[in-house]
Amino acid sequence: MAADASRRAVLALVAGGLCLALAMAASLLARTGALSTAEAWHALTGAATSSSAHLIVWGVRLPRVLAACACGVSLAVSGALLQAALDNDLASPQVMGINAGAGFFALAGTLLFPFSGVARQLMALVGALVSTLMVYLVARRAGAARTTLVLAGVAVSSLMSAGSNAIVTIWPKTVVDKLAFSLGGLTGATVSQLTLSAPFMVAGLGAALLLAPGLDLLALGDETAIGLGLDVRRHRVVAIVCAATLAAAAVSVCGMLGFVGLMVPNLVRMAVRCGLRWGLPLCAIWGAVLLVTCDLLARVLFFPYELPAGLLLSLLGAPFFIMLLMRRRRPR
C-alpha cells in the first residue's frame, strides 16, 4: 500500500483508539440520576463507599459498554466483509436481511428453548445463514446478482421481520422489551449474553482478517482476481458466512441494530483509501466508537427517559443510506 495511505490509516487507527477510550470513559462515568461522575469514578477504581454505585458501574454500565464495543466491532466488520465480497457499498447485515433473520430465529430459539442461551445463539446463526442464502438465491434467480442483491435483502428482511412480529404478538412474554429488540439497543445486554456470543465474534474476526487480502482482489473484478490466484467463489462464500456469523452474534446481544454495518465501512473508505488489511481494523474500532457513543447519547439525551440506541442509529443511518443511493446514480 502506498505510504500516504498507510499514514492516514495509522492516524485514523490512533484517532479511533482515543475516541473509543473517551467514549467508554464517558459512558462509564456519565452523571445520571443519583450517581455523580465522582461517585462513578470511585466505584470504578474500587474506592466507592456505596454498594449501589459499585453495582451500577460494574454490574450495569461496564457490561453494557463492553457489549456496545463487541457489537459495534462485529456489525461494522460484517458490513465491510459483505461490501467487499459483493462489491456493493450498499450491502450490510441490515440491508441484506441478515439482522432480521438472526433476530427472528433468535426469538424462535427463545420461544422453543427458553432456558438455553446457547440454543438462542445457534438459532440466531442459523437465521442469519438462512437469510443470506435466501437473498443469494433470489438475487441469482433474478439474473443480476449485484444489482438485485439489495432489493432481495429488503424482501427477505420484511419476511423475517414479519416472523419476529408474529412471535412477539402471539407470545408477548418471549421478549421483555420487544421495541428495544426490534429497534436494537443495549438496555438488556448482560455478561452472560456477551460470553455466549464472544467465541463467534472472535472466530469471525479472526477469519475476517485472514480473508482481507483476498477480498481486496475482488475489487479488480472476478477474472483478474482468478488470474492472480484467488479461488473467487470459495472466498466469497466464506466471507459471507463469516459476515453472517458476526451479525448473528451481535444481534443475540443487542437486537436488530441497524446501519452500523452500512455507515462505518463506507465512512472508513471515504476517509482512508486503503484495502481491507487496514480497513477491517479501522471498521472494527470506529464501529465500536459509533455504538458506544450512540448508546451513551441514548442514555443521557432525554434522561430520565432512555431511547433505544437503534433509534439514534436509524436517524443517522437512513439519511446516509439515501446519500449513498444518490451518489451511486451520479456519473463518476
Binding site: M1, A2, G221, E223, T224, I226, G227, L228, G229
Partner: peptide
C-alpha cells in the same frame, strides 16, 4: 500464468497497491 483481461476495473486503490496485488500468489 499471469493474465491481463480485456476489461479492466477502476478500483479506488493506489497504483502501487494494484501492482502489489500481482504478488498475491
Amino acid at each position: 500464468v499471469a493474465y491481463l483481461p480485456q476489461t479492466l476495473s477502476t478500483p479506488a486503490m493506489s497504483v502501487h497497491t494494484l501492482v502489489g496485488h500481482g504478488r498475491f500468489a
